[in-house]
Amino acid sequence: MKVLIIDDEEDTRSIASMSLSILGGLEVLEADSGADGISKAAAEQPDVILLDMMMPVMDGSETLEALQANAGTKNIPVIFLTAKAMTSEIERLKRMGAIGVLTKPFDPTILANQVRAILEG
């Protein structure tokens, strides 16, 4: 399974990437901005996208909108990875089309399982 992580924080990206690949055994792609994420998503066609909410230039919501607007990426499921303070946003994010929300800081030991669980519904 191929996972695309879109996050402007390189450290977070690295930890998430390592958790998913080393502990979860998943194939991981990284993008450091919304725009980068959209192009990588279109190019690589990942099975799921982990999208950070708070990013400069193009934040999570805008990125999601762009992904959904693009025929090549609109069918790729998106899970938001957001700070816990933003839980009030969960409903809004889900209405926007995200299939789930994971909060930061995440537990690297179970991150892969959480992603799988959401994908399996």
């Binding site: 450290d11 930890i15 930061k104 800081p105």
Partner: peptide
């Protein structure tokens, strides 16, 4: 949280 996420991870 951002740095803590990295540290904890």
């Amino acid at each position: 949280r951002t740095p803590l996420t990295s540290i904890r991870g």
